[in-house]
């Protein structure tokens, strides 16, 4: 069993096997690990349980950390990590939900996860699972895509309390976010917390913050 973050980080680096997949990005490892290790109610033995929580990796680029966590938690064999991006591998440079157990959305094109998360949040409420939660991870540069802002404004107005967003902020947005990322959400009625992306306790506290009448955003700041 791989149950420490060091072991999972090693798994993530195991994905460096091919020239087509040269860059391992693990700055999202901490928030994804905290989610899967301590927060999400997901059983790898029952990946289709309709009551499960959902994690949507919207920022599909550089999914090494995500693949490593899924493998560590038993969604698929760790050996899969040795062949990422090969022709017959289910694991590619962008995750495909139809190929990988535990992957909830096919990603790669930026700006799709948050609108999909809005629909999933409504869908869980409508199908009798109002306590099931939807977590969407986006990048700070991904926020450039206007579709996110359509979703942020709507989800705040609709008070989608079963929706959580994590912004993995590594300072890569070309024009930055003047006034701070959290303010973009707060002005639309979200609750927000900005934390150090390597502080697991702070991540956990934010992911488990009570927000009964509104969606919540965690801005996880990573500055190497």
């Amino acid at each position: 069993m791989n149950d420490t973050i060091e072991q999972v980080r090693a798994l993530a680096h195991r994905t460096v096997t091919d020239v087509r997949y040269p860059i391992v990005k693990t700055y999202t490892l901490d928030p994804i690990w905290v989610l899967y290790d301590r927060v999400l109610r997901i059983d790898p033995q029952r990946p289709d349980d309709p009551a499960r929580d959902r994690f949507l990796l919207s920022k599909g680029h550089g999914p090494s950390a995500f693949y490593a966590v899924l493998a560590a938690k038993g969604f698929f064999p760790v050996e899969w990590l040795d062949h990422v991006a090969a022709l017959e591998s289910p694991l590619g440079s962008h995750p495909d939900a139809t190929l990988v157990p535990g992957v909830e959305m096919s990603a790669g094109s930026l700006g799709h996860g948050l609108p999909l998360g809005v629909g999933t949040a409504h869908g869980l409420r409508a199908t009798g699972f109002p306590d099931s939660r939807v977590f969407v991870l986006v990048g700070d540069a991904e926020l450039d895509e206007g579709s996110n802002h359509e979703a942020i404004a709507y989800a705040g107005a609709a008070g989608l309390a079963n929706l959580d967003v994590i912004v993995a902020d590594n300072g890569s947005a070309s024009h930055g976010w003047n006034g701070g990322i959290a303010s973009r959400f707060e002005v639309n009625g979200w609750s927000a917390a900005t934390v150090d992306a390597s502080d697991h306790e702070a991540l956990y506290r934010s992911f488990t913050t009570d927000h009964p009448d509104r969606p919540h955003v965690t801005v996880a700041v990573h500055r190497p």
Partner: peptide, 27 residues
């Protein structure tokens, strides 16, 4: 049916994305 009949406002990317998300939730 507040969670099944939804008006997202004049936001067409969100319109389609929300429909896709509802489908992901089995609807």
């Amino acid at each position: 049916h507040p969670d099944r009949v939804i008006n997202v406002g004049i936001r067409e990317q969100l319109l389609i994305g929300t429909a896709g998300g509802l489908a992901l939730a089995g609807m």
